[in-house]
Simulated assay, not measured.
Amino acid sequence: MQIFIVALVISLVVSLGIYPLVIPFLHKIKFGQSIRQDGPKSHLKKTGTPTMGGFVFVLVPIIVLAILMPQALLDTKIQIVIISYVGYSLIGFIDDFLIVVKKNNDGLSPSAKFLLQLILAVIIFFMYRNVSSMGILIPFTHVEIDLGWFYFVLILIMFTAESNAVNLTDGLDGLSSGCVLIALAPFILFSILQGEYGLGVFLMAVFGSLLAYLKNNFFPAKIFMGDTGSLALGGLLAAVAMVLKQEILLVVIGGMFVLEVLSVIIQVTSFKLTGKRVFRMAPLHHHFELGGMNEKQVVLMFWCIEAVFAIVGYLMGVL
């Protein structure tokens, strides 16, 4: 157990040391966030806040794992998780870079971003099918059902949906990073219970680095993760759920992300069919914000809800 704590502490301390250097550097090179003009007006003051801060919590944990457990990098399942993490981060980086260059919120087109996410999911699937079954575990029963090639469809949905869901949730200071930290906890426990210690060490390193990011991202944020971080975290959660055979529980453990996506789907569908909006603004966190709650209150409320989802998901996985 000692190595898990060491991974967390090293990653936390190193990342805490890096962010005070990264933030002024990103300011200097004018890598600032562009804020949606159609979003809450209170967010316009965040324009220019350094973005792409996610690259720190993507790179640091990989280096920490390579130092503490270099042999783990030979494990195909861990390779899949790292490729997912870095791959989706690179897609996000391209999007962020284009936004910074154009000085508006138009980065990669939705179709181009989706295509890249899809291609990466296909690569991950073919890597995974060589080391595991195409089945899913049914909660409470511990029965595995073989989906055959339908598992391929499931993986495509998981990766594209989860990466975009975390991205949608990244709309308030500390919201997405806090929810991901909470969602990581059950998966860390699952990895230890299943004897996947290398994966557990890596996730603890991610936890430590993400905690350092949250310190700088909580209201008022000094830095944003950008798509560089949000797409990476979504890809990470999907990959971890896959290699730990907790695909179904990803929906429960990541319940807050599911609610955010559903709010957007409901809002768009309602407006197209009836011309009326169900929420004051979507995603869901903006609905509460425009209802009079301040940013901190919304974030803390969502963290609490996500904690309930995480606990329920964990219990479903062990009972």
Rank of each mutant, 00 (worst) to 15 (best):
G135T: 03
I78V: 15
F4W: 12
Y151N: 06
G195C: 10
L175G: 02
W303S: 00
L181Y: 05
P110D: 08
M301N: 07
A241K: 08
K113L: 05
A183V: 05
G135N: 09
I124C: 11
E162T: 15
V9W: 07
P186M: 09
K41G: 03
V243F: 12
A183P: 01
I78T: 08
F140N: 09
G53P: 06
W149V: 11
Q194S: 14
K272C: 05
I10S: 06
S209L: 05
M1F: 10
G87Q: 03
V261E: 05
L233K: 04
I3V: 14
I138S: 09
T228S: 14
V131C: 08
Q2G: 12
F93P: 01
D170M: 03
G171V: 00
L273R: 15
A239L: 05
V101T: 14
L116K: 11
F159Q: 06
V153L: 13
C179Y: 01
T160A: 14
Y85K: 00
S270C: 13
L68S: 07
V13E: 07
L244F: 09
F279C: 08
F140V: 14
V9G: 03
F114Q: 10
T169D: 07
S177C: 09
G234C: 07
I99F: 02
H287F: 10
E247S: 10
M256T: 00
V122G: 08
G229V: 02
